[in-house]
Amino acid sequence: MKKKGIFYLLEVFIAILYLIPFYVLISMSLKTSTDLSSKWVFPGYFYFDNYRNAWKEAQLGSALINNIIITVCSVIFLIVIGACASYPLARFKSKLNKFIYTLFIACMIVPALTILVPLYRFVIDIGGINTHWALILLLVTFSLPLTIFLYTGFIGSVPKSLDEAALMDGCSRVGIFFRIILPQLKPVTSTVVILTGVGIWNDYQFSVFFLQSKDMQTITVSLSSFISQFQSNISYVAAGCLIGMLPIAALYLFMQKYFIKGLTDGSVKG
């Protein structure tokens, strides 16, 4: 039983460690700007004006809607394009396919900044600046390598005998994908949705350059310019940060079972 005691102690210690940043953030966000008490001291009052101001100034309402549209569309396209692409790469390891696979995976390494200006010019030429669809295409493209990596790994673990059986029954190769493989992909799809969805939701490096007007911007971009505008008022900044993380944190807390299950199911076989 001594063992259990140590475990409980560790648990408490780690829990406190992880709760501290949130505690400090909340306490900062509830103070007025002239309250200079230590960050550990929780204010004796609740000054909710900071939240109201942050919401209004950073236009977080429209930013939230933009975020939802962009993330949902991106993730759906990502799954469809990624899963389709992974099937031939996992099953038919010809020389060409091996090369294509390596190419896709290598793209994971390319940092967004190296391609920023040529990309910016290109997107202007196709009329995509300050639009959601152009940003969605970009975010999908950049999440494709990881998606394909996870999907090919997972499909590789689906026994080939299933394919053979289907083939014998006259099913086409493409048909095999839709009828045999796809149903099996639920676990890894959850992993993909979570890993890429969170990344796309929190994206900053693309959104800051490609979304220009306040009514098109996402939460991270609005929040960032809000922070530079009001940096002298850290209560505003704290309130803004909290509101910024609220949507996805709330989603996570309600769906945490699925989040974690999705992540575990998909990653083990991959």
Binding site: I69, C73, I76, I79, T131, H132, F178, R179, L182
Partner: peptide
């Protein structure tokens, strides 16, 4: 499963229409 796929695609198309509309 193909039904779910079809629903997903329809949803995506609807949302992207909304997206282009918004832009």
């Amino acid at each position: 499963k193909s039904k779910t796929l079809a629903v997903l695609c329809a949803l995506a198309l609807m949302l992207s229409a909304a997206a282009t509309g918004c832009s």
